[in-house]
């Protein structure tokens, strides 16, 4: 038996929103410790990895590990039937999980709706991503990162990210001209969500597709801060941390000139 009850149902809506543009079908892997998902986009350039700890649910019950194969478009349609303040419970029979039950309860518990989502067999490739010591780790406001991606898309479909001790610089060059945004580290003790920090082993300069990056910024509503981890000639890691876990996006760099 699998059961996971999330008092903040809106979080599940936001999570789904941050994954569904990148992948259409995905396995939610459920175990005693929580729910996780790893899926690559069709072009095998980007990957999303989601982890939700069991402690974030109340209650959480999973007797044995199993996978829920979900079409995210279908799940999204059903999730639209949940109110933003609803408590959401996910239920499945782990021995014959051919459907996922979704229960939406409003705050006064007067309205309860129940939906069954048909599950599917998804044969997904999993990549093993090792713990990595990155050359540069940047924390910045997630809304700022979203704005930079949106703004620079006006100029080009790729962005070069340069990180030094003193700044992170985003540069775009296109047919109409060029643009860049530089951010310096700041620490605002009274407003930590607005701070920018750079931890640097060595300077890095990497080029990425803005289409994917701006797709990743769908995670913005999940966290005030975003973490960018870069190493030369390695995929970029973009992480949004939440109280109950994290969503991580990986993006392979573009080939340098």
């Amino acid at each position: 038996m699998f059961e996971a009850r999330l008092t903040q149902g809106a979080l599940l809506k936001r999570l789904l929103d941050s994954v569904k543009e990148l992948v259409t079908d995905a396995n939610f892997d459920c175990s005693e410790t929580g729910i996780s998902l790893q899926a690559m986009d069709n072009s095998h350039v980007a990957l999303v990895s989601l982890s939700l700890r069991a402690e974030g649910f109340n209650p959480y019950r999973c007797d044995r590990g199993f996978s829920l194969g979900v079409n995210l478009n279908s799940l999204n349609k059903i999730m639209k039937c949940a109110g933003n303040e609803d408590v959401i419970t996910l239920k499945a029979d782990d021995s014959s999980a051919d459907s996922l039950c979704l229960l939406f309860e409003n705050s006064s518990n007067e309205r309860v709706s129940e939906y069954e989502l048909k599950l599917m067999d998804i044969d997904q490739e999993h990549l093993s991503i090792p713990e990595t010591d990155y050359d540069a780790t940047v924390m910045m406001p997630s809304a700022e990162f979203q704005r930079i991606c949106r703004d620079l898309m006006v100029v080009s479909e790729s962005v070069t990210i340069d990180v030094s001790k003193d700044e992170i610089k985003f540069t775009a060059e296109g047919e109409l001209g060029t643009g860049n945004v530089k951010l310096k580290p700041t620490s605002t003790i009274d407003k930590p969500e607005e701070s920018i920090t750079i931890e640097l082993g060595q300077t890095v300069s990497l080029q990425f597709s803005l289409k994917y990056l701006s797709n990743f910024t769908r995670g913005t509503p999940l966290s005030d801060q975003v973490m960018l981890c870069l190493s030369d000639n390695m995929p970029l890691l973009v992480e949004y941390k939440m109280d109950i876990g994290y969503i991580r996006y990986y993006l392979a760099p573009k080939v340098g000139d």
Binding site: H44, L47, H126, L127, S128, S209, Y250, A252, V255
Partner: peptide, 14 residues
């Protein structure tokens, strides 16, 4: 895609 690495260039399949 021209000019773009793939994730499998960096990470092994499980």
């Amino acid at each position: 895609i021209n000019g773009q690495y793939f994730l499998c260039n960096f990470y092994a399949q499980k």
